[in-house]
């Protein structure tokens, strides 16, 4: 059965939707119900920048079963151009291509499949610019 969490997370996973606190202006991704900065519950809907910078990265060589055929693959902490830090896969690159400070852009990719007959789950990843 499709995961209810996957359906709920579509706005942020598909469209990078974020929440900006109306009171203090702090940006949250994924969106939160209560601002961790000032406690306000009022937010404006906004989006992450589609580009960012690698702050840190690592290569996964022993992966969970759903990702075993993709090894080695890169995971990075990326800071979007509007200041939000996101843990994300960096795809379409070789391990030696990754460097702290390199620019990336967010792209829409397949995340995993729920077996051969289940739904296909999509979301954001990044590629080097």
């Amino acid at each position: 059965m499709p995961s209810p969490t996957y359906r709920r997370e579509m706005p942020q996973r598909y469209r990078l939707e974020a929440a900006k606190c109306k009171k203090c202006g702090k940006l949250f991704f994924p969106p939160r119900l209560v601002c961790a900065g000032c406690g306000s519950k009022e937010f404006d809907k906004t989006k992450l920048s589609e580009t960012g910078t690698i702050l840190s990265h690592t290569m996964i060589r022993v992966a969970p079963a759903d990702f075993a055929t993709q090894v080695p693959y890169a995971i990075a902490i990326v800071e979007s151009d509007n200041g939000v830090r996101v843990t994300t896969q960096v795809v379409d690159c070789k391990p030696e291509d990754l460097e702290i400070g390199k620019k990336v852009k967010f792209i829409f990719r397949k995340l995993y499949e729920e077996g051969h007959t289940g739904i296909i789950c999509y979301g954001y990843k990044t590629v080097l610019v």
Binding site: T69, Q70, V91, I107, F108, R109, K110, I120, Y122, K125
Partner: peptide, 12 residues
Amino acid sequence: GMDEDTITISVE
């Protein structure tokens, strides 16, 4: 790529 299909290509 292994994580690309007609849907991801269409979106981009």
